[in-house]
Design a protein around this nucleic acid. Sequence first.
DNA 1: CTGAAAGCGCTAACAC
DNA 2: GTGTTAGCGCTTTCAG
Lengths: 356, 356
Amino acid sequence: MAVDRDPVALEQSTPAAPAGVAPGAARLAGVTISQVAQAAGVSRATVSRVINGRASVAPELAERVRATAAALGYQPSPVARSLALGRTSTVAIIVPDLANPMFQSVLRGLGRAAAAHGHRMIVAESNEDPREEALLAVEVGRHCDGIVLAASRLPDAELAELVPRLGPVVLVNRDIPGLAVPSIAVDYRAGIRDVAAHLIGLGHTRLAYLAGPPASAANRERVHSLRGVVRECRRVELIELECGGTFADGQAVAEAVIHSRATGVIAFNDLVAFGAMGGLHEFGVAVPRQVSMVGFDDIPFARFTTPPLTTASVPQHELGGQAWQRLWALLQGRSPQHNVIFRPRLEVRGSTGPPP
Amino acid sequence: MAVDRDPVALEQSTPAAPAGVAPGAARLAGVTISQVAQAAGVSRATVSRVINGRASVAPELAERVRATAAALGYQPSPVARSLALGRTSTVAIIVPDLANPMFQSVLRGLGRAAAAHGHRMIVAESNEDPREEALLAVEVGRHCDGIVLAASRLPDAELAELVPRLGPVVLVNRDIPGLAVPSIAVDYRAGIRDVAAHLIGLGHTRLAYLAGPPASAANRERVHSLRGVVRECRRVELIELECGGTFADGQAVAEAVIHSRATGVIAFNDLVAFGAMGGLHEFGVAVPRQVSMVGFDDIPFARFTTPPLTTASVPQHELGGQAWQRLWALLQGRSPQHNVIFRPRLEVRGSTGPPP
DNA sequence: CTGAAAGCGCTAACAC
DNA sequence: GTGTTAGCGCTTTCAG
């Protein structure tokens, strides 16, 4: 577990803080609005108005205020502002697993959109733990104006119960029909159906599904959809293999895949698909010649592997952007746009082919 | 550029907020300490003491306060607390590129350590833009108690000038000798030397280096070190190829690699190595039979590619953890531990072999 | 158009 | 032990 790389202690030691500044004080030792007001010979209210470009202040006065503010290097305190205004200009996103590029992309999309609107982004990781997720949501929620719950691992009922206690919230990758909460969803059922159809179209009749984390709603949808497919298509067999959502999970399941004698493998996501491909490779099994592999999400890596991974593409960045739009609407008291469901698009690449 | 997947508008529309709650108010409509105080028939100070487990309050009184607080569902306002206390219990991390798993891991390491100490983490992305980075640092810095600058793209001089205006800060992946700032660095020179030695030991004499982002100090160190190696080792030739830091950069440079007739390729990082491997594959060039490829960082993907990538492993997660320790010390006014430099460890895997 | 004053919710000396 | 009293720094009615 532990990384056994020896840290090399350097000769140079590091003082606690820049010389001449008290350690804790540094952050807050800014000039205050009062100081500016006094220096400019006006009231704090006036300074406030000028700074915020509020109600008309006499141009010359405004100029003087601006000048002294600049001279003093005045920067309004965000905390004080937050308290007075009742908002923090910060949003949070909670993801189950920061190691998953899928969530990273969503996070990135959200972060950029938020930044473009002058908002900060807090990110928290629930480590796939539903309990943790609920606690985090409440805790972190108090620090910001709104929160994005990505791929919540909470059961429907608990999620439905949590949301009202949360303030503005939008769901990504999850949609609870009864709940009046903006959500950005992905049509996993359709996506996985496309994937299965692709494999079946190639002639595969023995399919394996590498199941994701049990708490994942996305996984449940995929399983459900897959079972539907095989029910309709009698000659196709489906083997469900417990797996997980990470590289290691994928790699570990490789042997079971071989054992299953499936020729077409549908992984829960791209990470698993990678891991499995790597594992198969170690066993000398060739992809796609002996086994076809398909992933899900189309994370950036997918197109660069050898062979490039066939996968169902999900607009991850867009998910984050859309989430911001909904949240932003909520924050302004506007009614957010209609919910949206993205339909994954099958990207056929090199990891799939006809069965041997 | 644009993702041309049609969002499917749903029938179901979504109200702005849970019924009966004003949109903006939701976040702040909490019960206040005054209400608790009044309900419990004590002063606000007492409630504060109880909540914070402060100075001895009569046990029975404390219990009563706790009870009413619970009954009212009281939750202290973090913003008000921050204002009164002069700290936010939040730290920030600024990275050049959120898409890079290397930074994601650092971020994750920091996030976990921070969370373990009850701190939130703000994350911001500078998009490899030094100017943006400086602005972000100042802006975001005002919202939190301390900030981690990861792989700063700022020139030494500007960084040295920025840091003092920032409050507690620690540098990751960058070390400015003259500057009294805690830093967690990586010995890129040694790492890249190991990498080169590995290739040379295998018999390669014609090496190509796929250069990273120009603003990256890590890239400069690698180039410098590499040049030193070839100077010492007359029979080895080094071809430097402009590249970048992403998959796409790596893929795009594949043709130039082939053209260079190098047999050993050292990529700026694992991402580039991947991209290049993919590109080479498209051109029918086999790795490692015809060309050996080595990356840097050892991001999680590296061991799962085919062939698994030989790379210089950097303890990314640890970088984040160590950064937190330093920052935490700073926040408490303690003097942080000595600076640290991690020495990368060469992970020899399948992507390198003897020259053809 | 500008200033005075109240308050956002909480903490911390300082008295009692 | 507990309450009183000032703030933390900013915004915003409300007068003038």
